[in-house]
Amino acid sequence: MTQTAPIIDATNLDKFYGDFHALKDVNLTVHQGQKMVICGPSGSGKSTLIRCFNGLEWHNSGKLVIDGIEVHEHAKEIRELRQEVGMVFQQFNLFPHLTVLENLTIGPMKVRRIGQQEAEETARKYLDRVHIPEQANKYPSQLSGGQQQRVAIARSLCMETRIMLFDEPTSALDPEMINEVLDVMVELANTGMTMVVVTHEMGFARKVADTMVFMEDGRIVETSPPDQFFTNPSSERCRIFLDQILEH
């Protein structure tokens, strides 16, 4: 896996919000097919980091190369990049005025210029994949949170993305709906999708992650394989954090 060029390659990334130093000298590589889970306390910069990966935020210095495209604010290829990199948000962010099916077809039709029939076939395929084929004609507000998040995952998949970013995809969900979303994500991981997941669901992390990343205060403090990460993390901060979230 390490022989091929990384699909995400971040070198010395720094990011400021005004005076606030949100990312400090971040170095990270993700290879094709890799499943990376990022955790860390609130405000440590996890969202900021993965939002840099699809151009929702811009780093101020350092170098970020994704799928061979160097990412910066004025890159012409930024829209192509976004089509390669899907994003699933904590708050789902479905389009409330469109039906589920339209939510899934609007990207392929308007951005990729695919015909309606083909787009709908793809949409139904992915709705099947996330186990809600029967909801195609409903509006998002008529679905449960778990169903909405699965639609959001399907929406990204419909763009035939090569990398999927998840920003705390289950933390806005009622507890009984978390598993239906995590199950879909595990299945997605098994298809070989490259995934970068910000989550505190350590059960999920144990099941699918091949790399664990711990962030604190804008820095990556620890990067290690899960067995080492959970049993013997090298940093004290990480150990304390894990103790806190695993207590529950």
């Binding site: 151009g55 708050q91 389009f95 990207g107």
Partner: peptide, 12 residues
């Protein structure tokens, strides 16, 4: 969030 979702599927 609607802007972000639209951007993230590559819309202009």
């Amino acid at each position: 969030g609607q802007w972000e979702a639209a951007k993230s599927i590559g819309m202009t």
